[in-house]
């Protein structure tokens, strides 16, 4: 009894801890997101939020839905596996609203050399040219159809 009286102040200090702990548990109950821990130690709703981000590149399937003529030509040529937006850029906006968003025609002088300018670092079997020597400034599409570039395969203009 006497001990309890003389140690009373210790219980007061301990009481502060208990109060703080209860307050912590109450606040925690409110602030931890509802979906936290659904699949693991994270907010499950974040997965859906990231999955709902907007798409910029429509994907070649969307292009081919309308541009079947180009898809047919391209499908037979050397660029069969080069997808549309690799050259034409991100066009989900165009696929979304074909009438009002018009793609800009790429400049072949910049575009073609990105892949085809010669460098010893590129794979040996990959077609490469020294632009100045190869065409002497004449635009690529003068001779090559970008959708089916091989000249002897009937792709020449």
């Amino acid at each position: 009894m006497n001990l309890f009286k003389d140690a009373g102040h210790l219980f007061r200090f301990a009481g502060l801890f208990v109060i703080a702990f209860i307050a912590f548990l109450v606040i925690r109950g409110y602030v931890v997101p509802k979906s936290f821990g659904k699949y693991g130690h994270y907010r499950a709703a974040a997965i859906d939020e990231i999955a709902a981000l907007p798409i910029k590149y429509a994907g070649h399937q969307a292009c081919e839905t309308c541009h079947t003529d180009i898809a047919t030509v391209k499908g037979k040529g050397m660029h069969a596996h080069v997808n549309c937006e690799a050259c034409h850029g991100a066009l989900a906006a165009h696929a979304n609203d074909p009438a009002s968003v018009q793609p800009v025609k790429p400049d072949t002088a910049v575009l073609c050399v990105r892949c085809h300018s010669a460098s010893a670092a590129r794979p040996k079997n990959f077609p490469q040219i020294d632009a100045a020597e190869h065409s002497n400034g004449v635009p690529c599409e003068t001779c090559h159809n970008p959708h089916s570039p091989a000249i002897d395969a009937g792709g020449a203009k």
Partner: peptide, 8 residues
Amino acid sequence: ACCENCPT
């Protein structure tokens, strides 16, 4: 996006 646009 990277795979879609990889030409090779």
